[in-house]
Simulated assay, not measured.
Amino acid sequence: MKFGVLQFPGSCDERDAVDACARVGEAELLWHRDPDLKGVDAVVVPGGFSYGDYLRAGAIARFSPAMESVIAFADAGGPVLGICNGFQVLCEAGLLPGALLRNVSLRFHCEQIGVEVVNADTAWTRAASPGERLSIPTKHGEGRFYAPNLDELEANGQVVFRYAPGENPNGSERDVAGVCNLQRNVVGLMPHPEHAVDTLTGSTDGLKLFASAVAAIATH
Rank of each mutant, 00 (worst) to 15 (best):
V89A: 15
L90V: 03
E167Q: 15
L90N: 03
V118G: 11
K139Q: 11
R102Q: 14
E173V: 04
N181T: 14
C84Q: 08
W124S: 06
V89S: 15
E173G: 13
R126E: 11
P148V: 13
L189D: 14
S129G: 12
N185P: 04
P137S: 13
P148H: 11
G143R: 06
G86T: 06
F145M: 02
W124L: 13
L150V: 11
C180K: 09
I113V: 11
R174W: 06
Q183K: 02
A155E: 15
E116P: 10
D151G: 06
S135P: 03
R107P: 08
A147K: 12
R133I: 07
N119V: 01
A93I: 01
C84G: 01
V117N: 04
S135Y: 11
L134Y: 04
A123M: 00
W124F: 12
T122W: 03
G171R: 08
G141R: 07
L95G: 12
R107E: 14
I136H: 00
R162D: 12
E152I: 05
F161A: 05
L90Y: 09
G178Q: 00
G141P: 06
V186F: 11
A120P: 02
R107L: 01
E173L: 04
A99E: 08
N156E: 05
W124Y: 10
D121L: 12
T125K: 01
K139N: 10
R184Y: 14
V89F: 15
P169D: 00
A155N: 11
C180M: 03
L95R: 03
H109M: 08
A120T: 04
F108K: 08
G171H: 04
G171W: 07
T138M: 01
T138H: 07
L90C: 07
V187C: 05
G114S: 14
G94H: 02
N85L: 04
A155G: 09
A177I: 03
F161H: 13
T122M: 09
N181H: 03
P169N: 10
G166I: 01
V159S: 02
R133Q: 00
C91V: 00
Q88V: 07
G141D: 02
V104D: 15
G171Q: 06
F161S: 04
